[in-house]
Computed example of a mutant assay.
Amino acid sequence: MGQGQVQVAALLAGAAFMLSGCGLADSHAVWPEALKVKATEPAPLETPPDVKRLVASKLDSVFTAGSQPAHVRVSTPLHDPRGTGWTACVRAELTSVIGKPLGTQTYRVFIHEGAIFDRRQVETDDNCVTETYEPVEGAVTAEAQRNAKP
């Protein structure tokens, strides 16, 4: 390396060292607030969804078509701690494919931007066990909709 290249490298290293503390220094500087770098604010929460209406209109997104859900009930929506969406618990009396009653089954639904995008059957350690449920009026299965068409 020539002497000129060493000087340029030393100059660049010195400038990088001096600039590396700018972010830290800005948060503790005695500058007016308008001149400081502002921290990003978290995204605002969605408004709580109408879980009753959502489940009643999209029952097939929670239960399989052959399960014939009856006595559908939902819990109040809770903010999903992993994002800006919501979660709720949905319960119903289900029937197996061969017509045998399966009993009460509970699912946790994940709601984002007013739509159910995922559902999972709850486990024993899930808090859906302690939730309070309200009945869903007008919940119509996909099979009942097909049979109702002329």
Rank of each mutant, 00 (worst) to 15 (best):
V72I: 07
C128G: 04
H28C: 02
M1V: 10
V74S: 07
P77G: 07
V136R: 04
E93Y: 09
G114T: 04
V37R: 12
E137G: 04
Y133C: 03
G21E: 07
P81R: 10
A92C: 07
G66R: 04
P77Q: 03
K36V: 02
D126S: 11
Q68G: 06
P42I: 06
E137T: 09
T124A: 13
T47P: 13
A115L: 10
H28K: 08
G103E: 07
F17Y: 09
A88F: 01
V72E: 03
I116K: 01
R108S: 04
Q121P: 05
R91W: 03
Y133Q: 00
F117I: 10
A13V: 10
L35R: 09
C22Q: 10
L45D: 15
L24R: 06
E137S: 11
Q145C: 02
K38G: 11
T106D: 01
T87R: 15
A43I: 07
H112N: 15
R82G: 11
S27L: 08
C89E: 08
R119F: 05
A70Y: 02
P81E: 13
I111V: 15
D26M: 04
V72A: 00
R120D: 13
L45M: 08
Q7W: 06
E93T: 14
G138L: 07
K100V: 14
A148Q: 13
L35E: 00
A56K: 04
A92F: 05
T141C: 00
E137M: 10
T40P: 00
C89K: 03
Y107L: 11
A9I: 09
A39G: 09
M1P: 11
G138H: 02
S61E: 15
D80L: 00
A16G: 00
E93S: 12
K38W: 01
P44Y: 03
A25T: 00
L12I: 12
V62G: 02
A56L: 01
V74Y: 08
S27N: 08
A9Y: 05
A13L: 15
Y133N: 05
I111K: 04
A88Q: 05
E131C: 06
Y107D: 12
A13W: 01
Q3M: 13
T40C: 13
H79M: 05
Y107T: 08
A115V: 14
C22I: 10
G14Q: 09
L45R: 08
V62T: 07
V6Q: 14
A13R: 09
A70P: 02
R53C: 02
T76F: 04
P69W: 05
A92R: 02
A9L: 15
E143S: 09
E137F: 06
H71K: 15
A142M: 11
D118A: 13
V6P: 03
D118N: 14
Q5A: 10
H79P: 05
R53M: 10
T104G: 08
R53W: 01
V37Q: 10
G4L: 12
E33K: 14
G99Y: 02
A9V: 10
S96G: 15
T130W: 05
T84G: 04
A25E: 01
L102M: 15
W86V: 00
G23W: 08
D80P: 05
A16L: 14
H79T: 15
A9R: 12
D126W: 01
A65S: 12
G21Y: 07
P135S: 11
I111R: 03
H112F: 13
H79S: 10
Y133P: 00
G2N: 12
S57K: 11
